[in-house]
Design a protein around this nucleic acid. Sequence first.
DNA 1: ACCGGTAGTTAGCAACACTGAATAGCAAGA
DNA 2: TCTTGCTATTCAGTGTTGCTAACTACCGGT
Lengths: 116, 116
Amino acid sequence: MGKQTTEMLKGTLEGIVLAILAVSPAYGYEITARLRDEGFSDIAEGTVYALLVRIEQRGLVDVEKVPSEKGPPRKVYTINAAGGAYLEEFWRTWSFLAERIEQLHERIERTNEEGE
Amino acid sequence: MGKQTTEMLKGTLEGIVLAILAVSPAYGYEITARLRDEGFSDIAEGTVYALLVRIEQRGLVDVEKVPSEKGPPRKVYTINAAGGAYLEEFWRTWSFLAERIEQLHERIERTNEEGE
DNA sequence: ACCGGTAGTTAGCAACACTGAATAGCAAGA
DNA sequence: TCTTGCTATTCAGTGTTGCTAACTACCGGT
C-alpha cells in the first residue's frame, strides 16, 4: 500500500471502523473483510485487531464473546453511547478537514488553468 | 486542538503544506500564518518547521535563504518537480479516502433516518 | 496426521504531530 | 541602556498510530 495511504489512515481508520460498527455490530475478522469490500484492500489484520483493543479500552464499544462454528470464539463489537458521541465528533472533524482541503485543491486547479 | 484533529492531520498536513507551496513559494513563519488563515488555527509552529525539514530532505522542495528586514534570514521553500509528483499522488490518495468515507457517512445517515 | 481457512494476540518498528524551550535578529519604548 | 515584542528557526522528548511478522488456537476435509 502506498506510504501516503498509511499515513492518511492514521486518525481516520478509527472513525472508519466505528462507522462500520455503527451500521451493524461485527467481529474483527469480519471487519477486516468489510474493509476489503469497501475498497481498503490492504489493511493488515493486525492493525484492525490492535485498533479494536484500543477502542474497547477507551469504552467506545461493548464486547461479547460468541462461539464460532469454524474456529476460535469471535469477539463481537457493538458501538455504544460513548462510541456514538466519538463518531459524531469524528464526522465534524472530518468535514472540517475535507472542506479546507477541497478548497485548497480547487484553488490550485484554478491557478493551473490560469497558467496554461 | 481536538485530539482527533491532531491524528487526522497525520498524513494530510504534509499534502496541505505542499499545496500551499504550490500556490506560491513561502517560508516557514509565513506558512504557519497562512495555515491559520485557512482555518487551521492551532497548528504548532514547531510542527510546521519539522515538516519542512522532512520534505526538504526528501527533495520535494527547493530552498533559498533570503535576508529579512525584521529578523533572522528566511528559508523560502519552492515546490519542485518531485514535490509536484508527490502532491498529485497526494490528491489521488486523498480523493480515494474521501470518497470511501463519504460513502460510509451517507450509508449511516440513511440507516439513521430509516430507524426514526 | 496434515493442511487450509477462520479468529485473535503480541512484540517491535517507523512515521508523524505536539510540547516546550532555546537561539537569533531587529525595532520601538521605558 | 535595558527590555519588551515581533519575526524566524531549531531541537529534544513524548504519545499515538498503522505495519510487519510471528505465534496461538479451533475446526473440517483429505
